[in-house]
């Protein structure tokens, strides 16, 4: 699970903070949507959880571990517990689908294991890839060349890679931005179902507030680096600060 407390981020050349005191919790198995205007801080927030953006203030805990104190190998180990799903184009298109899927396991594999897998994958590894692909609905693509897949199929493969990572949380940055609306809804439904089934915290930035309200447990709005509205909090009748829970 994710615990953010007063997270602030300053990009040096920008006078305005990219994030200003964001406090937010996402529990295991909970699906939280992050909506708001472009440049409002959605991507920065997701990247800061991953340890890719240095914090100017506040703290981020993943499974109780403070992200900002981690460097090098310990940060790498933390990242194995956080799966990222991006807009698109983040698969290696020259690889086979099963290779992209099992790339999710790179964090726990030794370098030697990883290289051996590229040349000679073992049966149980292929079975794991197959299982992950089955749960995203494209098991038949196991050995296809990734570049031969459609945009929607590629996004499913990216989610399968995230599952193979066995994460505590999935951080999805506009995962449906480059898909047509129908496909996009399918992907959102899939993400939320998998997160609940597997008890994974899901934090997903989105452009469409109506989709966010339809599929997610909670919707938070971020603008100018600050959280504005927390859906669950509003529904519970409290109009207070963004952080409730």
């Amino acid at each position: 699970m994710l615990e953010l407390r007063g997270v602030s981020v300053l990009y040096t050349r920008d006078a305005r903070p990219a994030l200003a005191g964001v406090t937010l919790d996402v529990a295991a198995g909970e699906c939280v949507a992050l909506v708001g205007p472009s440049g409002g801080g959605k991507t920065t927030l997701l990247r800061s959880i991953n340890g890719s953006v240095p914090l100017a203030g506040g703290s981020i805990r993943v499974d109780g571990v403070d992200v900002s104190t981690l460097r090098g190998p310990t940060l790498r180990r933390l990242r194995t517990r956080l799966a990222m799903v991006a807009q698109q184009h983040d698969l290696v298109d020259r690889l086979r689908v099963y290779q992209n899927v099992m790339a999710g396991a790179l964090g726990r594999w030794s370098t030697w294991h990883a290289l051996r897998f590229l040349i000679a994958p073992r049966r149980h590894e292929l079975e794991e890839a197959h299982a992950a692909l089955s749960s995203v609905g494209v098991p038949e693509k196991l050995r296809s060349l990734t570049s031969d897949l459609s945009g929607g199929q590629q996004q499913r493969v990216a989610i399968a890679r995230a599952l193979v990572q066995r994460p505590s949380a999935i951080l999805a940055d506009e995962p449906i931005a480059s898909l047509d609306p129908l496909l996009g809804e399918q992907i959102l439904r899939l993400l939320c179902r998998l997160a609940r089934e597997r008890n994974i915290a899901l934090l997903c930035s989105l452009h469409q507030p109506e989709l966010a309200r339809r599929y997610f447990d909670r919707v938070v709005t971020i603008a100018d680096g600050m959280l504005a509205v927390d859906g669950a909090a509003l529904r519970a009748g409290g109009a207070g600060p963004a952080h409730v829970r």
Partner: peptide
């Protein structure tokens, strides 16, 4: 794609190979 691989916590050499 490189950023995606790095975000899985992969080591450098596997990122090069994959």
């Amino acid at each position: 794609p490189i950023a995606a691989l790095a975000s899985t916590g992969a080591r450098t050499l596997p990122i090069v190979a994959f």
